[in-house]
Each structure stands twice: as structure tokens, then as C-alpha cells.
Amino acid sequence: MVRLRELASMEDRLVSGHGLCLGCGIPVIMKVVLRATTDPIVIANATGCLEVCTSRFPWTSWRTTWMHSAFENAASTIAGVEAMYKALVRKGKIPKDKKIKFLAIGGDGGTYDIGFQALSGAAERGHDFVYICYDNNVYANTGGQRSAATPLGASATTSPAGSKIPGKMQKRKDLTQIMAAHGIPYVAQASPHRWMDLYNKAKKAFEVDGPAFLNVLTPCPLEWKYDESQGMRIANLAADTCVWPLYEVENGKYKINYFPKEKLPVIKWLEPQGRFRHLFKEENKWLIDEIQKSVDEDWERLQRLAKL
């Protein structure tokens, strides 16, 4: 079991001085994930909050090899680097025992939507890489537009709650399941508030031979509209309401890593977030029931999968 004391003694590969919002969940995730291997890491980072805020020229917050990829191709970029590494090892230009980890990072916009084709392709081709999606449920870097990860009923700038619609009218896409359906060796869903679970998952992801995918819930004070000190509490509510179950799929075998002591109603998760405020109006309350129903169904299905 890893201790925070050990992690704190390691050097940051993503350093202070970045321009991410106060209270942002992304650097917390990166702090833990980038410590889950001691090998050198090469990163391809899709356009998004993390990329923009850590590489505003001439500044960089990275102390590891890092490349900016366009929204759509972080997975292709890292696949190319990994293929080159293998070729150079074959030609004897890189020693066989020189291990390097290959990591692609994207937000939900760059992963669920724009970069999905590249990700699916790289996973199918079996490159030895890890893909991390920091899922903050929205295009936070470009003005808060809805993405395929935006949950049902959330107000976003392109699905604004008003007299016509009560926020986004579609259910979010379940990308973790879609990646599991690729049959790759390791897929997991995690959250920064449970740092050890996140660390263990990142470590497994780096260690497996072949593609690994991590989907990590990322509290976003700007677009979720909550008090910025509450990020980890909100993430905790996502896990306790089963809105964001923590689980992994290792070689096809499902395992749920966290069962809430008492499964909370989704209202607890919706309440503190301004993006759901309109749901509490009398005329929109039916949608809260819909959300609850959908969360319950997904949680039931996940438990059945874990029993297979």
C-alpha cells in the first residue's frame, strides 16, 4: 500500500505556476497519476483546459516530455511515438531495458467527442499506451458548451436551461463502457477524491502490456458552479450517489472498487451545483426523477456485470 509520504517525496512532473482555475480538479489527478510510475513518461496532450493552462508560451509547467496535440488526435500522436520507440529498440538505437511510458491525456471534449476516433483506433491497434480522460462533463476551456459527457439536465451554454429546455435533454455517453467493449487489457473509472484508488488504477494502467484507459471525474468549479473549496466533497457525492461508480475492467472482468455505505439520492449531488439549479423548480422536478431512474438502472447493470 502506497503512502502519501512516499508520493510527496517524489518530484512533480507537473509543477506550480500553471494557469488552471483555483480549485480545479485536473492538477490533483495529474499529481497522483504521474507518480504511479518511476519510468520516464512521454505525454501527448489534446487541446483542452490542461493543455492550454500548462503551456502558455514561453511558459511550461511540464517536467517531462510533453506534446500538444490537436483536439482530435492525442491518441494517434502517442501511438506514433510508441511505434517509433518500438522500432528504435528493434534497431538497437534505444537499449531494450530502457522502459518508457506513453500517455495520452484529453478532456471529455477531446475524448468522448472530437478525439474518439483516434482513441478507438489506437486501442484497437493494441499500442502500449495509457489514455487518461479528465472528464469535467463540459467544454470548460472554450466557454462551457455541452459535450457527450454532459449529464442529463445540466445547463451548458449550448444547452442552456430556460423556458424551452431544462438543460441538456440527452443522457451522457458511457465512454468507460465503450472502451471496455474494445476488449483492451485495462479500463477503469476513478475520481481524485479517492487518491489511493486513482493511484492503484494508474499504476495498473502503466503496467499492463497494451492499451489502458482511465476515465477520471474532474470537479470543475467554473462550469459546475459550486464553491471552489468543495471540489473533493462534490466528487465524493458523485461516488456516494452512484452517479460516478468507481470500478475497473481487467481483462474483461468487472470489479466495483467502491460501494457507498449508504447510497445517497441523486438530489445530494445535484443540489450544490449551479448547473442543476433549475431542476429544483416545480416544473422541472420530473427530470430529477428521470435522473434518479437512469442512475439506478446503470448502477444495477454495473453490479450485474461485476457478478459475471
Binding site: 510527496a8 477524491h193 473549496s229
Partner: peptide
């Protein structure tokens, strides 16, 4: 230390020494 988004908690030998106000954005996490 682990939940600070700005790597602004100063830790040495497993002990918190203080806050690095050069980077702390004041989120309160």
C-alpha cells in the same frame, strides 16, 4: 498536500512545513 491543485503545500520528510503563497490561489480545498 495531495488535494491542493497548485502544489502549494510545502512538505519535507513527510511533514507539512507550511503554505507556499507564491502559488496558492486560495481555493480553500
Amino acid at each position: 498536500w495531495v488535494y491542493c491543485p497548485d502544489m502549494a503545500i510545502i512538505v519535507k520528510d513527510g511533514k507539512v512545513l507550511g503554505i507556499n503563497y507564491d502559488y496558492c490561489k486560495g481555493c480553500g480545498i
